[in-house]
Amino acid sequence: MTQVVVPAGVRHPRPRSGRARRFAPWLYLLPAAAVLLPIFGYPIYMLGLLSVFDYRQAQVSGGEPTSFIGLANYRTLLEDDKFWSILAQTVFFAAALVIATLAVGATLAVVLTRAGRWPRLLLSFAAMAAWAAPAMTGSTVWMFLFDADLGLVNQVLGIDGFNWFYDKWVTFGVVGATVVWHSFPFVMVVLYAGIQAIPPSVREAASLDGASEWQSFWQIIVPMLRPLITIVVIQSVIWDFKIFTQIYVMTNGGGIAGQNSVLNVYAYQTAFGSSEYGLGSAIGVVMTLILLVITLFYIRALYRTGERL
């Protein structure tokens, strides 16, 4: 049996009863469960519960009784044009971010394998620095670079006073650049390691056959790294869909009249900004369901890569 690590009789002459064996897993798993349960169990329960209640400032302070309103919060959401437009721009923004992150990360991974020692070291260092930067500090630096009066970008471009955080799509562009700056290193580092793991003979054979850089990327690297790329893509999708800090900090909570809001920020603002806890929870549930579907794809991809479980 695979159960026994120490062959019975060597050190542990005590025969372990069936009952002990049945409970053994819990001894090891219980601590993890004890941490996860209060952090996820109750809040998820509350999330679901609040989403079917009328729960606002008045109810929190006890001024009005909490009342069950069924799916009314969801109906409010479905009829709310703002919710739909935010959902649409969340999906669009996340998709653009994933594509940009992958393009930058993959390109630089290939550059890394080709570049000499010093450029490679410097590039790795730059990536590490961007990766390590807290979302909070990264956001503020980029805000400063694009500041209307003090920002270097405006000074260099000679457009003093231009406000990058006024037009909706320009704002998304700047915030997007910040997010990509934060997240490309993960893609780059993982893909670089993957490329290194491809036997050099394969790559050399391709270049001897006269394959161009472009061809060998699409016809050798991508197919061989498919499992790795799948994981990177799905991780990026989950990460970019949940984006919060950059939007919250850089657009001061969602931009002018909330035009730059994404679902995560919208849920937060609805719950904590407007004290509409029930409605905010309903948004949270919708988001969670979308992420659940993405995660199921992730699990399937993990299975496919043959990760030993």
């Binding site: 952090i39 996820f40 809040p43 998820i44 509350m46 999330l47 609040l50 989950i238 949940k242 919060f244 995560n264 920020v265 849920a267 937060y268 719950a271 904590f272 806890y277 905010g280 929870s281 948004i283 949270g284 549930v285 988001m287 969670t288 992420l291 659940l292 993405i294 995660t295």
Partner: peptide, 9 residues
Amino acid sequence: MFQPTAMLV
């Protein structure tokens, strides 16, 4: 996959 913002309440 749970985002902290949804669980904050």
